[in-house]
Amino acid sequence: MKLKAIVAAVMGAVIATSAVAKDNSEFKLGFSVPQLANPWFVGVKLGMEKACNELGIKCISIDAQYRVDKQVSDIENMINDKFDAIFTTAIDANALIQTFEDAKKAGIATGSIAQVVPNSHLLYGMDEYNYGHAIGTQAAQWAKKKLNCKGKVALITEDNVEAVKRRGDGIEAAIKEVCPTMQIVARQAGDNPESGMKIIEAVLQQHPDLNLVIGSNDSGGIGGYQAMFSNDKVGDDKAVFSGDATKEALALIAEEGSIYRGTVDLYPFKGGYESAKYLYEMATKGLPAEPKKVFLPYVPVPQEDVISGKYKPAY
């Protein structure tokens, strides 16, 4: 009887421990965001929050303000605070490898999206060059049709982020393939609308006849559009293209007479939503021996599809 009592007590403790472990209200998922000034990351955040609400878990987003040291520190704090799962878009993937290794040793599920950390449990990645090529191709096809491949183009890229340089290369390659006679007058890094605006305002000082602005993301593209609009650079021979299909860019594309003529959907909401679900499953059912690899899809979104309603945004 004594042995049975001991077994019963142990089993009761196990059940109680399992119940605590399965209490979703205590589960914490952290997202280290490079910068919330970029609308794409807001989309990822919104997707994550929807998944967290469905699961009944806590989700916390922290803005790294595009500082590598802060991103590392933020994730270290999540580890010390015993988060159950952590994911990020890396500003500098190499700087996070050891930090993610520490998280994994602590039994924390790790993930990264877009610009991935190679030792993450979840690698929700993308092909930067091909994505850039899709952005550039849509813009170049417009230039071929409307400008007969004549005129000037400025590129707002993310060359300040090592992993994203190839996106700019893809844009530039597409321009040269489809419209080799177009003159590329600038290629500069712009991470947000403010920097994108400053870049194009400066370009317009030297090239007031600028026809085309291409942003490697909507964040820079929005700034480029604002600069063109405020300097009265509008009309049939002007255009702005970018990538990410954020709600901010889509709203500008839909405006009457807008020269914002297209974007490319990289599905940030879907990426954030699915990342949260994958990481929750890993943290609760067991960490994988090998990383799970998923790729962000992308599809061109021309202005006519936005105006007609053919394109349906995810959020």
Rank of each mutant, 00 (worst) to 15 (best):
G136H: 12
S73Q: 14
Y66F: 10
E290F: 03
K146W: 00
K312F: 00
T157R: 11
L96Y: 05
I307M: 08
C179N: 09
A109N: 02
I79C: 09
F27M: 10
L287I: 11
T157E: 14
P39T: 02
Q65W: 00
D102I: 01
V7F: 11
L212P: 11
K233S: 10
A249N: 01
Q138D: 12
E158R: 12
F269H: 11
L147K: 13
F229Q: 10
V161P: 01
A19K: 05
K45Q: 14
A103R: 02
G223I: 08
G286M: 13
E101D: 15
L266W: 05
I6Y: 07
K28S: 10
D159K: 09
K247W: 04
V264M: 12
E54T: 08
N53F: 03
G132E: 13
N24Y: 05
L210D: 05
K312Q: 15
F100T: 10
F27W: 11
K45A: 06
V178N: 07
K152N: 13
A103M: 03
N119L: 09
A134G: 03
E194V: 13
P297F: 06
Q65P: 00
G220K: 01
G257R: 08
V33W: 02
Y131N: 14
P297T: 14
F87T: 10
S32A: 15
P288S: 10
Q138W: 03
I222E: 03
Q71H: 02
P302Y: 12
Q188S: 08
G125V: 06
A174D: 09
R261K: 15
N80E: 13
A289F: 03
V234G: 01
T157K: 09
I97L: 07
